[in-house]
Simulated scan of single mutants.
Amino acid sequence: MNQTHTRAIEALQPFIHLANSNSATSPRFIANIITNATSHPHTYVFAELLETPTIQSLQSPDIPPEYQGYLKLLEIFAWGTWQDYQATPNLPKLSTEQTQKLRLLSLLSLATTIKPLTYSALQSALSLPDTGDLESLVTSAIYSSLLTARLSPSSNPPTVNVTSVAPLRDVQPQSLGKMITQLTEWEARCGEVAQDLEAEIEAVKANAAIRATKENSYKEMYDARVKARKQEAGAPGAGGGGSGVGSAAPAARRGPLGIRRGARGLFGGNKREADDIEQDDGFFDAGDGMEIDEGAGSGSGRGNGSRTKRVLGGRRG
């Protein structure tokens, strides 16, 4: 419970005891209780005092007319405003303390109903023609912990920026039915919102489960493919040698003239010519074919000083 509300209830207790005492029998005594309770600087709630049989006895038609208005006055202090007091005839005249108290209580109600809370609106509702009186009233409410607010006289229009209001106004009995209806509707809306949230949560869980299933399936497929690739790579003969591009061929033997020995068909000739290439190591010139100059006296028996040429791998002329 708010500390300000607790202090207000404690401040009202002596007046409740007086109303419940045996001496509270005359209308004048009851009227004095109401006057003193509403004038006390720390009393801001009056529902408990209103509920006492002594205070309710003022509704009797036997009560003198000058005291009949005190019950209505206490009701205005409990849940009414300054405007209600001015609009109700035959009410007792207020003292300075009661006037200040009723304006403070009215300020609490106005702070929760008027948006924005401008100077002009407050001055009209509280019958305060002077701006200084309004600022003094608001400052008093702030120091009494009735509300948390900040004055903004330089804003356009000048306003009172209220951030919190103490729960010090009583609830009018006639408004309980309306409040119960509003609370019931609010409870129904909260139930609908809760159901919608639960449905959303279930949908999110279902989607998450579907995603998890797909991810597990993809992972199993990936693992199976990786395993199959590894098995293929480790199979016998897989990726081995052969006559492909990557296989290493033995180095060819080459003769003194750089001609690879044993390479038959290298120059497009027949087997005999290839054998001649393997056997002859003489000087040759590359022409239309490949010629081997055997030189003079090579043992071919074709004459003295003559040179014999043999054509290998080309056309013979």
Rank of each mutant, 00 (worst) to 15 (best):
L50C: 01
N90I: 04
G191A: 11
N36C: 06
N216A: 15
K309G: 08
A249L: 13
I277K: 02
L257T: 15
A296L: 06
L108G: 00
E185I: 11
A296Q: 10
E198I: 06
W82R: 02
P250F: 07
W82I: 05
T96H: 09
D280H: 05
A78R: 01
P53R: 07
I55Q: 00
S120A: 15
G313H: 08
T88R: 01
Q100C: 04
H17A: 13
E273M: 03
E51W: 06
E66T: 06
N207Q: 15
K219Y: 08
T148H: 12
R264Q: 10
E220R: 10
L257V: 11
R150S: 14
G69P: 03
E192D: 09
T148P: 03
V45E: 08
Q56K: 09
D223G: 04
Q86A: 09
Q86Y: 07
G299V: 06
G246R: 09
Q56E: 07
A141E: 03
S247Y: 09
S300G: 10
R189N: 10
A121S: 12
A37R: 00
Q3I: 12
Y85I: 04
S120K: 13
I292Q: 07
A296W: 06
G258N: 10
S109D: 05
L104T: 06
S26L: 08
I210R: 10
S243F: 13
K72P: 05
E187K: 14
L147S: 00
G295P: 03
G237H: 08
M290Y: 09
K214Q: 15
A209R: 13
T159S: 11
S127I: 07
S140M: 09
Q98S: 02
R260C: 13
L151M: 08
E192T: 12
G241S: 11
P14V: 04
P250R: 07
S144N: 12
H17P: 02
F267L: 13
R169K: 06
G191R: 11
D130W: 03
L107R: 04
